[in-house]
Computed example of a mutant assay.
Amino acid sequence: MTSKKIRPLLLLFLSALLVLTACGGRNDGGEGNSTLSGNIEIDGSSTVYPITEAVAEEFMKIYPEVNVTVGVSGTGGGFKRFVVGEIDINDASRPIKEEEIEKAKQNGIEFIELPVAYDGITVVVNKENDWVDSLTIEELKKIWSPDSKVTKWSDIRPGWPEQKINLYGPGTDSGTFEYFTEAVNGKARESRFDYTASEDDNVLVQGVSQDKYALGYFGFAYYLENMDRLKAVKIDSGTGPVEPTMDTIREGTYKPLSRPLFIYVNKKSLERPEVKEFVNFYMKNAGKLASEVGYVPMAEDVYNENLSKLK
């Protein structure tokens, strides 16, 4: 074959290869294009953080000119910024409160609430703890109530070690703190405060994993990620001890510590194409990515409803 005949065939082959590469590079089902750019700022719950961070990482692979930052100041800390328009999206492990809605209105902030996954607040002890297998809700209340007299493990059940119990839990800006205190103590934010507190669940993981006599609570994903260092405590709400698992959280049998997780999106931010594309991408991939980082996905029709809200 002459060089004059080879050249057109080579050009045709290269053109076809470019088309195939361009088509194969998109696997997100998104409607945007790689020319998107800008900054998206997210803050809030450390519990929701692993899902949002996973979504952000995948999104930025497709849109490298968009910078998505995800903070962990806690649900309440995030809402403080969200209701004054400082951030585009707030991760939340509880629904927005009436007073937060009112502050948003005062500042002209309109928003959309989007549920993204289910979580089970997990009570954990150190891996070397060989005396605790389960706790009742009443025993949890005995430990965590504002007027608690529990200082040693033996104060919970006779026969348990006469050793000081060292408690770890979320700080007061955490949605996990509010949900747990309401579920266990009967009123949100009612709790003892002589414990090691942090809005960063990794700090709590570190504390419990290094202390044989510790007990703490935080989101299920952080337990799954550290099963080699922690032991989950089964919870008995009156029908027998139930272990937190994907199935018990999904079915609602792990009660009363199963709960939905949300993101809240500023409507004005959605006018920016990079934010709109990000939130659409989030809803199309939340189920898969939530499972990958240790949460229970919502039913598919919930994500479809969320997409309808965005339209």
Rank of each mutant, 00 (worst) to 15 (best):
S3E: 14
K4R: 12
K5Q: 11
L11K: 11
L12K: 14
L14Y: 07
S15H: 09
L17H: 06
A22C: 03
G25R: 12
N27Y: 01
G29V: 01
E31V: 05
G32I: 01
S34A: 13
T35R: 10
G38Q: 14
N39D: 13
E41S: 13
I42L: 08
G44W: 04
S46P: 11
S46N: 15
S46L: 05
P50G: 14
T52Q: 05
E53V: 04
V55F: 08
V55I: 15
E57M: 13
E57F: 04
E57R: 15
F59V: 12
K61F: 01
Y63N: 04
T69L: 05
T69V: 06
V70D: 09
V70M: 08
V72L: 01
S73M: 07
G77I: 14
G78W: 04
R81Y: 00
R81M: 11
V84K: 15
D88V: 00
I89V: 08
D91R: 02
S93V: 01
R94T: 11
P95E: 15
K97C: 04
E98P: 01
E99N: 13
A104P: 12
Q106V: 09
G108S: 12
F111L: 15
Y118K: 07
G120T: 08
I121D: 03
V123N: 04
V125Y: 00
V125S: 04
N129Q: 13
V132K: 05
L135Y: 05
E139C: 06
I143Y: 08
I143E: 07
P146F: 10
T151Y: 02
G159M: 12
W160V: 03
P161L: 06
Q163N: 10
I165Y: 02
L167P: 03
G169S: 10
P170A: 14
S174L: 06
F177Y: 12
E178I: 05
E178Q: 06
E182D: 10
E182V: 01
K187N: 13
K187A: 15
E190Y: 06
D194G: 05
A197G: 11
A197L: 11
N202S: 14
L204V: 13
L204E: 13
G207F: 15
V208F: 03
D211S: 13
L215H: 01
L215E: 02
A221E: 02
M227I: 15
D228S: 12
K231Q: 12
V233N: 08
D236N: 05
T239R: 13
G240P: 02
E243R: 03
E243L: 08
R250G: 07
T253G: 03
T253M: 02
T253C: 01
T253I: 01
T253E: 03
L257S: 02
I263S: 02
E277G: 04
M283E: 11
N285H: 09
G287A: 14
K288A: 09
L289E: 04
V293N: 04
Y295A: 01
Y295W: 06
V296E: 02
P297K: 07
E300I: 00
Y303M: 05
N304C: 00
N304I: 05
S308M: 12
